[in-house]
Structures are given as C-alpha cells and as structure tokens.
C-alpha cells in the first residue's frame, strides 16, 4: 500500500498521535481509565498501521523481532523486580509501601513501574504476534511487501 498516497500521508500523520495517545493512557492510568495493558495495545496498533502502509520488511527493520523478544522479557522482569525490591526493603513481595519514605509515595512509585512493565510486555507481545502472523506461510517477501 506504499504507493497509495492518501493512505501513506494520512497514516504518517496519524501514527505519532496514536503512539502519543498510547503513552498518555500509560502514564495517565492513575487518573483516568486505562493502564499498561490498554496502552500497550494502542502503541502496538500504531506499529501495526505502520506495517500495513510501509510493509513488513521496513517495520521489522525498526522493530526487529530479536529486540521485541528482549522487550517481552524485560516487562515481566521489571514487574517482578519491583516485587523483589520491596522484599529487599523489608516488605512483602509487591508491597509498595516500603519503596519510599511515605507509604503513599511508595504506592505511587510501585504502581508506575509495575504498569510500565505491563505496558512494555503487552506492546512487544502484540507487535511480535502481528509480525509472526503477517509473515507466516508466505513464500518470498510478505504480501505486505508487494510494492516494496
């Protein structure tokens, strides 16, 4: 779809806003609806749109499958290490009260990092799944690359 100018131009101008909205949902989850899971899906939707317009090969160059696999693990590890950190500081696993001097502050930090971990994992998983499905079972370049 690379040569479809309307799609390319409108997609190009939409993608940054979709990604910004993903970040907004991620970090505004304390105040409004949303959180890591929804944010991850929205951010991945931006990448999916990019792939649909510019082709799988180019998208894979930006979000290489190897890196995405590392991010999948990084999110879960971030979540788990918040729990371990609270244990190191003398609390129970995932007890955020001990993370800062003030328990409410600690809760804020804990929720922020934990949600970030969820967001990272979900983003990477969604991108990986889409790449796998889009590049599956096709001999030669993916169908999305037909005009590349």
């Amino acid at each position: 779809m690379k040569h479809n100018e309307i799609l390319r131009v409108s997609g190009k101008s939409l993608i940054p806003f979709i990604m910004m909205f993903g970040l907004y949902v991620q970090f505004h989850g304390d105040y409004g609806p949303g959180g890591g899971f929804q944010a991850g899906v929205i951010f991945a939707a931006g990448v999916v749109l990019y792939t649909l317009i510019f082709g799988l090969r180019r998208a894979r160059r930006v979000f290489s499958p190897r890196t995405m696999e590392a991010w999948i693990c990084a999110g879960v590890l971030l979540y788990g290490s918040v729990g371990l950190l609270s244990m190191l500081k003398g609390g129970a696993f995932l007890d955020y009260n001990v993370l800062a001097h003030d328990p409410v502050h600690g809760q804020h930090w804990g929720i922020l990092w934990v949600e970030l971990g969820v967001g990272i994992t979900v983003t990477a998983v969604m991108i990986t799944l889409f790449f796998l499905f889009a590049g599956r079972g096709l001999r030669g370049p993916s169908r999305l690359d037909h005009e590349d």
Binding site: F93, V104, V118
Partner: peptide, 25 residues
C-alpha cells in the same frame, strides 16, 4: 488515603491485586 490514585480501578489492579496482575502479565 492508603494508595492514592483517583482511579480506584488502577489501585485495585496494580496494588491490592498486584499478584493477580503479575500473573496476568
């Protein structure tokens, strides 16, 4: 008072039910 965020769903998901969310991730 205990957790803070105005969105109580977030406090329940990420703090009170932090184990569950870890499991989901």
């Amino acid at each position: 008072i205990e957790v803070g965020p105005p969105n109580i769903v977030t406090s329940v998901l990420a703090s009170y039910r932090g184990y569950d969310t870890f499991g989901e991730t």
